[in-house]
Design a binder for these strands. Structure first.
Lengths: 358, 358
DNA sequence: CTGAAAGCGCTAACAA
DNA sequence: TTGTTAGCGCTTTCAG
């Protein structure tokens, strides 16, 4: 038998349960029970073995479509997101989910909607029409989302976002506020108590508007709150904030740091909204003759590729994406009470923090 | 009608074609023809409209599982890879494929095998048992792969890899050799004709062995050949090669450059096997007091996030991942003759190349 | 132009 | 213990 053929006799057709039953000399139901290991049907061990052997001989594979039609369960789950599967940024969530689902023998559908509600609706309709057993609904940025009603028709867990209607729907998100506090702790422990700036707030008078600002990301306010609260608990506060008017990328981080330096500020530590901004900030510092970490300490958030590639490597509060994906899949499988879980953002081990100069 | 309900009457059950037919006062077959727009059946326009209206009124969604069982076509494709969907590196291929498949109304199953042949076999069996319409078989590194026979049972296109059995199976891969030549051209055009080193060959006497070396990546030999051929065409050659014994990452790039400099070599240009290595090399150069690009020019391959984050931004021959994904999906849909397509790797626009000093 | 009926491959209630 | 049978919801042939 070549494995390229559907069956040993070389014909293209796939082997059906009826053929297995016939070969084993039993009824189709007996064959079905035997192959599904249904002990409650009290088949004789001998019959079971005979059916199994027949199935092996014929290279039988159950037709999952037929099984799904009959049972209503497909053994599939869909990952519905804006950009998660198609961009590298939050992509590790897919890994976590994939791992856990595989352990449970489930297959994953992947769709990205590019943030288009109509596209999303069509995908959801199509997926539900395929009897998917559950939905993992993910967002690239941590934010509040309005979950389409049709997604509620099957078990649902949100990844990296929270439902506007609150904890009625399960979700797994990074603990942004804890991360903000952790950033503060790292600096405080190194001896920093002043000259600490934050890079990456919205420009004054602007809380949204175009592009992703309109999506209401939760990261900024929560990180900032955790950071300030922790600093204040230690009897200090931020020296100031530097706004970024657009994407949190390398170029804008660079520009923000240049503006700060041009104002004559000599920061001792900078907390950056993400790794890309921190890299840009680091580039600007270097060009200004300032050395990280001896002149200026740097902390950021994300803990991705860029943090590791930076010289020195960045201390960054890592988004626990794999863990989010895995845990969300877990909750989906558990089928328990709805709940919101916040996962710790641990620091990467970098070398961008040192005690202040003086 | 709340869209949360399966049907207007609020019951959980989904609306079936039979119910639509009944409401429209036609037979199930007529309803089927109308909803599938089968003009060949010459239904009266009036009937068609009536059926459509009934379907709308009831919120009818065809049960795709039943349709699949009947037709043998599921409207799904599977992306089977080692690590592509679960890591950020080659992930943009998913985007390209996803885009093209969506245009064709197909849904995508995503599975990653972590390079485990047994896991892969199980996934393939499961997918085929679900009547998938095709397979996109992808590899994270460009390499030759042994495609499991069972994958050949459905239309198949390889992404970023070539089948060991040659062009009998379609594949879309980056044109690595062209990229090597392009790297040479970029340097030659800037006036470089000597002191050009390559960073990232295998160590002497080692062509494989552990980890990914065993997977036989095609990138290195092809890039190197394109590079050397182009240099030789211009009457020059590499000044030498620097080996990297392990992953092509930032740390190893750093170490390689330090070794080179410790040997007293003063390179004028370095061609690095990928962006990460180039970043490491850049870090080492900077620490040695050498400035990119005025003292040393840098070119690399990949053209990813890191190339853009580098300061200065790297000139890098970009892996056309989105294009590979899109084109592979295209070939899968076309159903034409098997063929191997090589896609150009265009240079990113960076600032890491300048004319040599002297 | 429309309707009846077969059947895709499987599961599970029920009968023997 | 085993076998018969009725569907799951849809498409499609064929007869009207």
């Amino acid at each position: 038998m070549t494995s390229e053929d559907a069956r040993p006799d070389g014909s293209g057709r796939r082997v059906t349960l009826a053929e297995v039953a016939e070969r084993a000399g039993v009824s189709r139901s007996a064959a079905s029970f035997a192959l599904n290991g249904r002990l409650d049907q009290r088949l004789s061990a001998e019959t079971m073995a005979r059916v199994r052997r027949a199935a092996d001989d014929l290279g039988y594979r159950a037709n999952v479509t037929a099984k799904t039609l009959r049972t209503g369960r497909s053994g599939t789950v869909a990952l519905v997101s804006d950009f998660v599967s198609s961009t590298s940024f939050a992509n590790s969530m897919v890994r976590g989910a994939l791992e856990r689902l595989r352990e449970a023998g489930l297959l994953l559908f992947t769709v990205d909607t590019q943030g288009d509600a109509e596209v999303e609706q069509r995908f959801l309709d199509d997926l539900i029409a395929r009897d998917i057993d559950g939905i993992l609904y993910a967002s690239m940025f941590t934010r509040r989302v309005e979950v389409p009603a049709s997604a509620r028709r099957v078990p649902l867990v949100l990844m990296n976002c929270e439902a506007t209607e609150g904890p009625a729907v399960s979700s797994v998100i990074p603990d942004e506020e804890q991360a903000g506090a952790a950033a503060a702790q790292l600096l405080l422990q190194a001896g920093h108590d002043r000259g600490i700036w934050f890079v990456g707030t919205f420009p004054p008078g602007r809380t949204g508007g175009d592009a992703w600002h309109a999506w209401g990301p939760m990261a900024l306010p929560l990180r900032l709150r955790g950071l300030r609260d922790a600093l204040q608990d230690a009897g200090t506060d931020l020296a100031g904030e530097v706004a970024i008017d657009d994407d949190w990328d390398v170029r804008n981080g660079f520009a923000a740091a240049q503006r700060l330096l041009a104002d004559g500020v000599v920061p001792r530590a900078l907390v950056c909204i993400n790794d890309a901004v921190a890299i840009g900030v680091g580039n600007a510092l270097r060009r200004a003759g300032l050395h990280v970490p001896t002149d200026v300490s740097l902390v950021s958030f994300d803990g991705g590729l860029l943090a590791a590639a930076s010289d020195p490597a960045l201390v960054s509060l890592r988004l626990p994406q794999v863990e989010i994906g895995r845990r969300a899949a877990e909750l989906l499988l558990e089928h328990g009470e709805a709940r919101v879980e916040r996962l710790r953002m641990p620091p990467t081990d970098g070398a961008s923090i040192a005690p202040p100069r003086d």
